[in-house]
Simulated scan of single mutants.
Amino acid sequence: MNSSVSALPLSTRNCANETLTQRLPSSLELKQQLPLSPALSQQVAAHRQAVRAILNGEDSRLLVVVGPCSIHDPQSALEYASNLASLAAEVSDELLLVMRAYVEKPRTTVGWKGLAYDPRLDGSDDMAGGLTLSRELMREMLRLGLPIATELLQPMAAGYFDDLLSWVAIGARTTESQIHREMASGLGMPVGFKNGTDGGVGIACDAMRSAAHPHRHFGVDSQGHPAVIQTPGNPDTHLVLRGGHRGPNYDRQSVAQIRHDLQKLKIPARIMVDCSHANSGKDPLRQPAVFDEVLEQRLQGDSSLVGVMLESHLFEGCQPLSPTLRYGVSVTDGCLGWDATEQLLRKAARQLRNARQNIPASA
């Protein structure tokens, strides 16, 4: 057995493993550097209210969170956002399109953690630059008129973006985290909790019940100081189904059982289906089939299905990080291409429009 590490003098090991720190600007400083105009702040408030209205059944449109698995290239992300903004205006009578602007990525072991962590994609981890770039990029997307969605992975990073967001995801691996539940209870926008990686919804149900309550917890204030944070509780949480190790959970039988479980716990039955991950067997080209099945359930009267999520980029598939990257192709999970995404969303809007007008599906 190789014992060279344990044989090192203790002082040498401590020196070699010394933890280094680098100060970041506070969230307040970055917000002051890159502020939102009053008009954009009002736009965000209106978008949040539109999402709430869908969750509460006051707006019959379908909520669609759509965009790249992760953003790694600002230019291609803005081109995608421009395309989405144009489409959003055309289908706004039936669909509320929300731009998926994910700048943090959870890693099972190690790997690229997202634009906010490593904006140059080279392991230099310029997090100050990443936070600035991420905020600039989201602000440009807002100027296109789009609502913005992201997954909040690191609670300390949330304050750099929270004023820009209309919808937030808490991922399958963090839904169980008390820290994320406390954070969600203080967010001023709707939050979707994903089911656990095993496919069960019990953990997400616990998370929604926890986030609905006020909390006092340790945290950091807007000036970067340690603080006791008091939250009011978030009434606008909902469940996101993403499948699990045992397979998909968007089929009629699964949704009916989950709806029953939510009602038994007196949790509002408002469900979004993530068309990717285990629900598509990690095949991005299967996302339209998942979407179509969810839409069919809605058309047959299941009002608990309030939304869907799609991973989509300019071009389909994915690619590993390398010095020569293909433009508009994901560097994390595989995505549906824009042409297929546009076709899918136009078809969905047409089907919903026809159903509202009692036009036969074959028309």
Rank of each mutant, 00 (worst) to 15 (best):
S82A: 12
C205S: 15
L97G: 06
C318K: 15
P235I: 00
Y102F: 14
S185K: 04
L164F: 09
D302P: 07
F315K: 11
T197W: 04
L314D: 00
C15P: 01
T174N: 13
R326N: 13
F315G: 06
N234F: 05
Y102G: 02
L336G: 14
Q343C: 07
G233I: 02
L133W: 02
Q230M: 07
K347T: 12
G233L: 03
M156L: 14
A348N: 03
Q43C: 06
V308K: 11
A363W: 07
R139Q: 13
Q253A: 13
L97P: 05
R143C: 11
G337A: 13
E176N: 11
E18W: 09
P323H: 09
P38M: 02
I267T: 01
R135I: 03
Y117C: 14
A349E: 02
I71S: 05
R252S: 10
A45M: 08
P226D: 09
R61K: 12
V51M: 02
R139F: 06
D251Y: 06
A101T: 07
N2G: 04
I258R: 08
D283Q: 06
P190H: 00
H213E: 14
R246E: 00
E79H: 03
D162G: 08
I170Q: 03
P190N: 00
Q287C: 08
M272R: 07
A77H: 02
T341L: 10
D93H: 13
A101I: 05
S76F: 03
N2M: 08
T132D: 06
P323Y: 07
P214V: 08
L8G: 10
R143V: 08
S304W: 10
E90M: 11
I179Y: 00
R23S: 00
T324P: 02
G186D: 12
D333L: 15
H277R: 14
L8A: 11
L345F: 01
N354T: 07
